[in-house]
Amino acid sequence: MIVIQIGALLMCRIMSFLAICPIFSQKGFPNFAKLVVGGSLVISAYPAITEYKEIANTVLLGEVAIKEVIFGLAMGYLSQLVFSGIMMAGQMIDFQVGFSMAQAYDTMTDVQSAQFSKLYYWLTISIFFMLNLQNLMIYGIINSFKIVPLGTENISGASVDGVVQLFEKTVEMSLSLAAPMVVAVLIIDILLGVISRSIPQINILMMSLSIKTVVSILIFLLALSSLSSFLGNNLSEGIGNMLEFIKSVK
């Protein structure tokens, strides 16, 4: 019976984490593959459970299972923060450039997105795998059972404040990422506005779409190396924040 309880609680934390974390939470990731990954992580994490007492009370067992689900969702949320911030930056750029008028439903992210949102997202995915951060993320969820044993989660006020601060840092990172291109396109809008007042005969709308598209792509290509470094640093920091959160929950 104790083996079944441990397996069920392991599954609660791991599957709730996989339901919201990067890569594995995507709709394009097959459900069968999610079950295989979840089952493999449960088997890998089982040796880390050294001190667990069987819970005879069904209500108490349900409360422990809910705590495990909440803790898994919290870890997954923190690991996903950087990806959400990057998507936010892409949406701001799309809006300023004009690509938001051509938004389409993205079956992978399950949101309406345009060109730069998709471009930034997939660039982030590529950098995530190039830096082998998926291994660090998996290590974090496995090691969490050694740091925070089953049923002992205590998400204090300090932990909540830390999550709020990480959210603020994510918004700041998103604004920093989008600012150069948004400012450049905004300057183009101002110049085109002056031209439209000087020469009303020119079709500024059609001209602006072409100019802003070309300028945004050129800026992206020129900043690609710095952008890759910026994303890599923030991705590493994001996974590190998840590990720090695990250590703070005891």
Rank of each mutant, 00 (worst) to 15 (best):
I4R: 01
I4V: 09
Q5G: 04
A8S: 10
L9I: 15
M11F: 04
C12H: 02
C12P: 10
M15I: 10
S16D: 04
F17L: 03
A19W: 07
P22S: 04
F24T: 15
S25W: 11
P30T: 04
A33R: 00
K34Q: 08
K34Y: 11
K34M: 08
V36Q: 08
G38Y: 01
G39C: 00
L41R: 09
I43V: 11
Y46F: 13
P47I: 01
P47Y: 03
I49L: 00
T50C: 01
K53Y: 06
E54D: 06
I55Y: 07
A56F: 11
N57T: 15
N57D: 15
V59N: 07
G62M: 01
A65M: 06
A65D: 07
E68H: 02
E68G: 02
L73R: 00
A74H: 02
M75F: 08
M75A: 10
Q80E: 10
V82I: 09
S84A: 09
G85C: 09
M88K: 10
A89P: 11
G90L: 06
M92T: 08
G98H: 03
F99W: 09
S100I: 01
Q103A: 01
Y105D: 02
D110E: 01
D110V: 15
V111K: 00
S113A: 11
F116M: 14
S117F: 03
L119S: 07
Y120M: 14
L123P: 06
T124G: 03
S126Y: 06
I127K: 03
I127T: 15
L131W: 13
L131I: 14
N132A: 04
Q134W: 14
N135A: 15
Y139Q: 15
I141D: 09
I142E: 07
N143C: 07
S144W: 01
F145V: 15
I147E: 14
I147Q: 11
V148R: 05
V148F: 08
L150K: 00
G151Y: 05
T152V: 04
E153C: 14
N154M: 14
I155H: 04
S159R: 00
V160Q: 05
V160F: 14
D161M: 05
L166R: 07
T170M: 14
V171H: 07
M173K: 02
M173F: 14
L177Y: 06
V182T: 13
V182W: 02
V182A: 06
V183G: 06
I187L: 08
I188C: 12
N203I: 07
I204R: 03
L205N: 09
L205E: 12
L209T: 12
S210D: 10
K212H: 13
I217D: 11
S226H: 12
S228C: 14
S229N: 14
G232K: 02
N234V: 07
E237Q: 15
E237W: 10
G240Y: 07
L243K: 15
E244P: 05
F245V: 03
K247Q: 15
